[in-house]
């Protein structure tokens, strides 16, 4: 088993020959066992990245390694829940799970799948087409979790769920990650939704990966500073965002060395960090994960 769940180099995907790039120049490494938030506004390339990782789309350029192999080769060990939670409407809940068992004969964990469905008070005999959006999400998650994947890719998994179900299913996912060391990547355009559960961040914006790394490392690499506008010189540091209000300058920077003593500094929140990078697409990307691949499976 590889210690790297996902590794991208120069990864890009363009739809159609003349279409725009949905994702470009993505480079990051996600170590195995992490719970990773894939955050970004609508159209940032989150779904494209997840579909590439699930082996459902070929990249236009660059390379993506999944669990130490090709995305297609890793398919059997990867669980994927697409954004619109496609399921066969004519099957019942029980039949859908039985299909999961039949199509994943070597990996299927019926107990886990049933447990996820049972949590939603779903009648196994009801047809998928009669379910609400949240109930469908639950069945889709049961199908993905029943596969007992090493890597679980979830595209906006919580969007259709009520707060109670969200809390419960997030708990199920975290327990899964803790018990089996499952790597989970879940996308959302709401940072706060994932902040408490995730230890790793991929920030996508306009088809690029803007930030990648452990959340703690990313936060530690940035500082929010404020000081007098005329006397503060930040040119030695990487300035992600700076704003002058009256004589006051506030900025989010990546310090490259000691800071002038008269500045007030504080650690930014994850949301501040994310918003500052999204508001300033010109700011250089940062990958705080260890860049070296350590002995991945050949």
């Amino acid at each position: 088993m590889s210690d790297t769940a996902l590794e991208a180099t120069g990864l890009g995907k363009r739809f159609g020959r003349r279409g725009g790039w949905a994702l470009r120049d993505a480079a990051f490494r996600l170590p195995a066992g992490r719970v990773c938030a894939l955050v970004g506004p609508n159209g940032a390339g989150k779904s494209t990245l997840l579909a590439l990782a699930a082996g459902l789309l070929p990249p236009t350029e660059g390379r993506l390694t999944v669990l130490g192999g090709t995305p297609a080769g890793a398919r059997a060990r990867v669980g994927f829940v697409a954004q619109d939670k496609p399921l066969y409407p004519q099957l019942t809940v029980a039949e859908t799970l039985r299909m999961g068992a039949d199509l994943n004969p070597e990996r299927w964990d019926a107990a886990t799948a049933e447990q996820v469905v049972a949590g939603g008070d779903l009648d196994p005999r009801s047809r998928i087409r009669s379910l609400s959006g949240g109930q469908r999400t639950r069945v889709a998650l049961a199908l993905a979790l029943g596969k007992r994947p090493e890597l679980l890719l979830l595209d906006e998994p919580m969007a259709d769920l009520d707060p109670l179900a969200r809390h419960e299913l997030m708990g199920t996912l975290m327990a899964e990650a803790a018990q089996y060391g499952t790597t989970i990547v879940m996308s959302s355009h709401v940072v706060a939704e994932l902040e408490d559960s995730c230890d790793h961040l991929l920030l996508a914006g306009s088809g690029r990966i803007r930030l990648a790394g452990e959340i703690d490392d990313l936060l530690a690499a940035h500082l929010r500073v404020s000081g007098a506008a005329e006397s503060t010189d930040l040119s030695a540091h990487t300035v992600v965002e700076s704003r002058v209000t009256g004589r006051q300058l506030t900025a989010l920077i990546r310090p490259a060395g000691p800071l002038p003593g008269d500045l007030r500094t504080s650690v930014p929140s994850l949301e501040e960090l994310v918003l500052a990078h999204l508001r300033n697409p010109g700011a250089p990307a940062l990958s705080a994960a260890p860049a070296v691949t350590q002995g991945s499976a050949a």
């Binding site: 590889s2 790297t4 590794e7 082996g55 459902l56 789309l57 070929p58 990249p59 390694t65 130490g68 192999g69 090709t70 995305p71 297609a72 080769g73 890793a74 398919r75 059997a76 691949t293 991945s296 499976a297 050949a298």
Partner: peptide
């Protein structure tokens, strides 16, 4: 194949 990339799991790719 154009739609999904490799149709069969390829041989273990290099990382």
């Amino acid at each position: 194949r154009r739609l999904t990339g490799a149709l069969r799991p390829g041989k273990g790719a290099t990382a």
